[in-house]
Design a protein around this nucleic acid. Structure first.
Length: 370
DNA sequence: AACAGTATCAACCGCACCAAT
DNA sequence: GATTGGTGCGGTTGATACTGT
């Protein structure tokens, strides 16, 4: 029993952008009489608008509690989490973000977050890696895995360089979605006293659903060591490396090393988690077009350490039984040049891109820093 | 400087739901 | 139960700003 939309033009009502004068009339009226009864409101307020237009203007723009400006990291976190659960229920998502309207969140999702996820090969609807790409790549990689032609396909798929070892690992994994162990990952911590970063290789611990005896720990330790060696070969990571050159100055050497480790770079959908966060973290990490290590020194800014810790604490509270692993290998790399959010991304042209990239990395680190 | 292409976001549109009649 | 009015929601549009050539 739907209502017909307002018949503005037939009734000579105005459409389009609101003028200051119209805003003032609407505000004056609502301050005196409150909102509601939108159908009769414009007539009483002396506005040549339909009630629907007035309601929209009020709820999306004039409401005094509306927060303006950029979305904070925490807000983006919340949006992604909630979208994973609620889908495009923008009003429901907005209910968790005081001062933000559903329209604003929807726009931000469509113009920023959605694009970012797509660019990383993640389906923004399902929050999982795009299976179409994965299946295609799996087919291709089965015949081309050892071929140099392999690296010509990513541009066709529109997912960035397949030099991304994580994506390769994902597509070539024997135990796709069911591996017993997780990829060792790199995290980084800034030591202000020594003015340098400690890169940490973290082996994410096995999930309880997989009996520990199934694991060949010796093999795993060897793989971790190999991975560690590959890590060391890429050191030091200059902060000026662009985000689009995944393997630094010796791409082929490093990539070859990483390809040796590809079975260890599986994407693992281990336990079905009650929350999208862990899987999102995996996917964000997985889908990055850059080898994580490459970004360790070029992304993390000490000033965000607290944010990371805070987010970790939030995750701990929300998912008390979920934890990442225990095997930790620490390396130290020289501190990059003095960091700021702008100089860190010296080769990125867009401030928005910088921030998007930063947020993606932060989300990754949030999951890895445990 | 001029133009074209792209990004952003306020506003609109159509539909659905619910309550009142 | 059918109709109507009020409101909310999600998708889309279009004006404007921005960026690149």
């Amino acid at each position: 029993m739907g209502k017909s939309p307002c018949r503005d033009e037939r009734e000579g009502l105005k459409k389009g952008p609101w003028t200051v004068e119209e805003d003032r009339k609407l505000l004056d009226y609502i301050q005196k009489h409150g909102h509601g009864r939108w159908r009769i409101l414009p007539k009483n307020a002396g506005l040549k608008r339909c009630g629907k237009s007035c309601r929209l203007r009020w709820t999306n723009y004039l409401r005094p509690d509306i927060k303006r400006g950029r979305f904070s990291f925490e807000e983006e976190e919340t949006i992604i989490q909630l979208h994973g659960v609620l889908g495009n229920k923008w009003s429901a998502i907005a209910a968790h973000l005081p001062g933000r309207t559903d329209n604003e969140i929807k726009n931000h999702w469509n113009t920023h977050i959605r694009k970012r996820l797509l660019g990383m090969g993640i389906d923004p609807v399902t929050h999982t890696p795009r299976l179409d790409l994965l299946e295609l790549y799996s087919i291709l990689s089965s015949s081309l895995y050892h071929s140099s032609q392999l690296n010509t396909f990513p541009s066709l798929l529109g997912v960035g360089p397949l030099g991304n070892p994580n994506l390769q690992g994902l597509a070539t994994a024997d135990h796709l979605l069911s591996s017993q162990y997780k990829t060792p990952e790199i995290t980084s911590q800034y030591d202000p006293q020594q003015n340098q970063y400690h890169n940490t290789l973290v082996s994410n611990q096995f999930q309880s659903s997989h009996p520990i005896h199934e694991l060949n720990t010796s093999t795993y330790a060897t793989q971790v060591n190999q991975f560690h060696s590959a890590v060391q070969e890429t050191q030091p990571c200059a902060a000026s490396h662009t985000l689009s050159t995944p393997f630094g100055r010796e791409p082929q050497l490093t990539q070859a090393k990483l390809e040796q480790l590809s079975p260890n770079l599986n994407f693992i959908r281990q336990n079905t988690l009650p929350n999208v966060w862990p899987s999102m973290g995996e996917q964000l990490n997985l889908a990055r077009n850059d080898f994580p290590l490459q970004n360790v020194d070029s992304i993390i800014d000490p000033q965000f350490e607290n944010e990371i810790l805070q987010t970790r604490n939030n995750i701990d509270q929300q998912i008390p039984n979920y934890s990442f692993g225990s095997l930790i290998i620490t390396t130290t790399s020289p501190s990059p040049t003095p960091l700021s959010s702008t100089t860190t991304y010296a080769n990125c042209s867009s401030t928005e891109d910088e921030r998007d990239s930063y947020c993606s990395n932060i989300m990754m680190f949030n999951m890895l820093a445990k």
